[in-house]
Design a protein around this nucleic acid. Structure first.
Length: 326
DNA sequence: CTACCGCTCCGCCATA
DNA sequence: ATTATGGCGGAGCGGT
């Protein structure tokens, strides 16, 4: 699968790093191929200059287009180079999956791709994006927004979260977990997730919430009531629920369900355990209960999910993967 | 599927 | 005065 990234003037090296680590490094077989595109030598952050082999027109050949952050000068003048907008537009028209990192969302917006959609960007630019493009529903409080074929992420490391999310969609949770583990980042940021919006940015772990979330993940098979969790966190239940919501953007039960479903997905992919064993090992109780939640959250059955993703097999574009928001 | 019933979770408010 | 805490109640969610 071709992933193309336009090299934008002054773009952060960090985003180049993300692209190379995730899409340019073969973590499984088959894997993505990463292409950098620019109309000529491009100076990026820190004064390095890249000379990509492909021009901007190559964006249209990609299945996925990854747009990095744009320079401040473009934000100040409110001008995105027309040839870039045109190339992005062409790629979108050709059916490419459009992904933006940080302020790259401005390029998507300029190309009209975000109209009427929920989107996010770096929190410092969120209000500007909303003002500049009133038809875009900007949510500055989430790590990333997945609209299926259009995905936007917030600043810096949220871009990595989004890239891992994409790997999870394409190759399943098990492969994504492997990538995350080898990159030594959390496979899934502690935080809740609903169908398209994945968690508010967790407050830096000054409170004990991070370690509590880890503890909960390690004890998913236990009956974890709010009372038990609150006691573990040494808080009253009322304060705990409040702190929890501030840190994760979701409620304890919702968050637990998400973690348990993730565990179940991983086990479905990486083991041959029968379904009722999987539900037990992920803390979801009966197999009926697992099926119930699987259907509601992912829109498929555990067995179908396993068929699509077992042992890292790549789902074809028409298979379960496409509609699996994860 | 439905019924049941325990748990969740959030507004409210007294209190620290 | 302002802010955080935590107990209470009840609507409703969800697991058996």
């Amino acid at each position: 699968m071709h992933v193309a990234m336009p090299v934008i003037e002054d773009m952060p090296m960090y985003e180049l790093g993300i692209a190379y680590e995730v899409f340019g490094t073969p973590w499984a077989d088959p894997w993505y191929s990463l292409r950098l595109c620019a109309s000529g030598p491009a100076r990026i952050e820190s004064g390095f200059t890249l000379t990509p082999a492909d021009g901007l027109d190559a964006l249209a050949d990609a299945e996925t287009v990854l747009i990095p952050a744009i320079p401040h000068t473009w934000l100040r003048t409110r001008e995105i180079p027309p040839d870039l907008v045109r190339a992005v537009r062409a790629a979108a028209d050709a059916g490419a999956r459009m992904v933006s990192l940080c302020s790259g969302a401005f390029v998507l917006a300029a190309a009209g791709i975000l109209d009427g959609m929920r989107a996010t960007t770096h929190w410092q630019q969120a209000s500007a994006l909303a003002r500049w493009h009133p038809s875009v529903e900007v949510d500055p409080a989430v790590l990333y927004v997945d609209n299926g074929n259009v995905l936007t992420s917030a600043g810096r490391s949220a871009g990595l979260d989004l890239c891992l999310h994409i790997v999870r969609r394409d190759f399943g949770a098990h492969v994504a977990n492997q990538v995350a583990r080898r990159m030594v980042v959390p496979a899934h940021r502690p935080g809740g997730q609903s169908q398209y919006i994945d968690s508010s940015v967790p407050a830096a772990d000054s409170d004990g919430m991070g370690s509590l979330l880890q503890w909960a993940c390690a004890n998913l098979t236990e009956p974890l009531t709010v009372e038990v969790l609150a006691r573990q966190a040494k808080m009253s239940t009322r304060t705990f629920v409040r702190r929890f919501h501030e840190a994760t953007g979701t409620t304890p039960r919702q968050w637990l369900l998400t973690q348990r479903l993730n565990r179940a997905k991983d086990l479905l992919e990486s083991t041959n355990l029968p379904i009722d064993q999987i539900s037990a090992h992920s803390g979801l109780g009966s197999a009926a209960n697992l099926r119930q939640h699987f259907g509601a959250a992912i829109g498929t059955t555990p067995t179908d999910y396993r068929r699509a993703f077992h042992q890292g097999r790549l789902a074809t574009s028409s298979a379960a993967g496409r509609r699996v928001p994860v």
